[in-house]
């Protein structure tokens, strides 16, 4: 400790900054040798890790959600489908035990992503008490990379309306039923048709998808950087893949209410 103090004195006197580092190195300066999980996940990198890992989980969920919903377009190609393929796919997802268990995980991760996201935004904003008169703005970064909190909030507002439209009726308040080969199931296709007859709902869903697109444009590649992908080869690939994902997935989602509203899917 004496050596460390000596180093500090040297440092304060600014006698020799390099000498000070050598003193620090050989002295008994306390250096962490162990880490609790709490320490890991409450550190600035750990908080980001939570965002990145939950984000990647939600990205995989989007693929599944998009795939199931895309079954609605079977009604365009098969004249006698009338939403049968979509209803069966939705019923499979809603009735399978494993999927229902994963659904709990999904909600847990969604809320973890939301809560940690807000906490991180507040944490980061608190680090600059006095702001700049002239903002750095978009001179060094994309606007959507700096607006993840705002985009996330727009997605959350959309999600609440989306849950009220489909998830709550399906799980709690009930949906009109339809029978295929003696098996009764929710007619989610009919519910979609009714919901997407209103123009304001369609516009809201499209706006929700645009917010999701911009959120993914930054979030996708950022999540992989956060979990430590630093190789140039993968970073280039993941950035390209991220932009493609951010355009394709929200576009496919947005086309669902649009095609229903325009009467292309019956």
């Amino acid at each position: 400790m004496l050596i460390w103090n000596r180093a500090k004195i040297l440092y304060i006197k600014k006698i020799n900054w390099h000498l000070c580092l050598i003193f620090a190195a050989i002295s008994s300066q306390p250096i962490l040798t162990s880490m609790t999980w709490k320490q890991v996940f409450s550190s600035s990198i750990g908080r980001k890790l939570t965002m990145g890992l939950t984000g990647i989980f939600l990205i995989t969920f989007l693929i599944v959600h998009m795939g199931i919903n895309a079954c609605m377009w079977a009604a365009v190609y098969f004249k006698d489908d009338h939403g049968e393929m979509f209803n069966k796919a939705a019923n499979f997802m809603g009735s399978m035990v494993v999927i229902r268990i994963i659904e709990f995980g999904l909600f847990f991760f969604i809320f973890l992503h939301i809560i940690q996201g807000y906490m991180l935004t507040v944490y980061n904003r608190s680090k600059r008490a006095v702001g700049y008169a002239v903002d750095y703005g978009s001179k060094g970064s994309k606007w959507y990379s700096r607006s993840m909190g705002l985009l996330g909030t727009l997605i959350l507002l959309f999600l609440i309306i989306h849950w009220l439209h489909f998830w709550i009726p399906s799980r709690f308040t009930g949906v009109e039923e339809v029978e295929y080969n003696g098996v009764k199931m929710h007619n989610m296709f009919a519910l979609m048709q009714t919901t997407f007859q209103q123009l304001w709902v369609v516009i809201l869903y499209v706006l929700g998808c645009i917010s999701l697109g911009y959120h993914l444009a930054h979030g996708f590649q950022s999540a992989f950087k956060t979990i430590g992908v630093h190789n140039k080869r993968y970073q280039t690939m993941l950035t390209g893949l991220g932009y493609a994902f951010a355009i394709v997935v929200p576009f496919v989602f947005a086309m669902m209410p649009i095609t229903m509203y325009l009467g292309w899917v019956k």
Partner: peptide
């Protein structure tokens, strides 16, 4: 008292 990184890239640009 530094904040956490959100990979915006403003640091690299400057």
């Amino acid at each position: 008292g530094f904040g956490a990184c959100t990979n915006t890239g403003a640091c690299e640009a400057t």
